[in-house]
């Protein structure tokens, strides 16, 4: 049975229909990624699924007692609100300090517990957010653009971490990204969104779908293959090797980005 399912979901805010007629479901242990250009309603879909936006049409069903670990894209903290990492990880539910320490270690952010949130770098902050979500012991981990502000090796490391978490916790993972190639190969299923669902399925199938190519151009197909190459080697080879791959990878990423404006004009 699926953890969350949506049927014919549409969300309208401020008179603008952000998503319409979206069918969605995710089951335990699955990694599903939603891709789409800017303004395609990716974040709107996520926010509707976690209950932050009321659907204007269609239905959302959540499994009873579903625990969601949510990692927002960014978190603006009022400078008057003092907050250490450890305290933040205990919101809304307090946890023993050993558990907080273990969660920080797991996401590669050991030793940050006593630091004020405001002092963290982008990558550290992302990890703290992830650790907080894990402490909720989630059935479903929801991440909005988790690699914003990370470089290519950083993104690749984060996706590997997410795969490890899925293995260990058995939770489902729902991600949103506009960073196509890296995300896609780390996913079981990809949903290509542009207001409505353009196409969905296994990463290979989506990458070769004409709807997907119309949105993102065909340059990204090569990038997907390249990433896989990088990914396969990274485990076996020494660090400098992986780093070299990361460089070529980064190059292709900028290429994919350059394709972006053209395809948006087409739509």
């Amino acid at each position: 049975m699926s953890l969350i399912s949506a049927r014919a979901l549409s969300v309208t805010h401020a008179g603008h229909t952000a998503i319409w007629d979206v069918d969605f479901e995710i089951s335990r242990g699955e990694i599903v990624t939603v891709v789409g250009p800017n303004g395609s309603g990716k974040t709107t879909l996520l926010r509707a699924l976690i209950g932050a936006l009321r659907p204007s049409g269609g239905t959302i069903k959540r499994q009873a007692g579903l625990k969601i670990g949510y990692v927002p894209q960014k978190l603006a903290i009022d400078p008057t609100l003092p907050m250490t990492v450890a305290r933040f990880l205990g919101l809304p539910h307090r946890h023993p300090s050993e558990k907080i320490k273990a969660a920080l270690e797991q996401v590669g952010a050991a030793g940050l517990a006593a630091r004020p949130l405001a002092d963290l770098s982008g990558g550290q902050f992302q990890r703290a957010l992830l650790a907080r979500a894990l402490l909720e012991n989630p059935d479903l981990l929801v991440l909005d653009e988790p690699t914003t502000g990370l470089d290519q090796p950083g993104s690749a490391a984060l996706y590997r971490l997410i795969e490890d978490i899925r293995k260990e916790y058995g939770c489902a993972v729902l991600m949103v990204s506009h960073e196509l190639h890296v995300v896609m190969s780390a996913s079981d299923r990809v949903i290509c969104l542009n207001g409505h669902v353009c196409c969905h399925g296994a990463p290979d199938i989506v990458a070769s779908a004409p709807e997907y190519r119309a949105l993102f151009g065909s340059g990204t197909g090569g990038a997907l293959a390249l990433y896989r190459h990088d990914h396969d080697h990274d485990h076996d080879h020494d660090h400098s090797h992986g780093h070299g791959h990361g460089h070529s990878h980064g190059h292709d990423h900028s290429h994919a980005k350059a394709d972006h404006p053209q395809t948006e004009v087409q739509n």
């Binding site: 209950g51 949510y70 809304p92």
Partner: peptide, 19 residues
């Protein structure tokens, strides 16, 4: 307290936690 603090920090975090 906890709910107030979570909702003050970020509304979406609160929603996701069922608040």
């Amino acid at each position: 307290w906890s709910g107030l603090l979570t909702a003050t920090l970020n509304r979406d975090l609160a929603y996701a936690s069922g608040l």
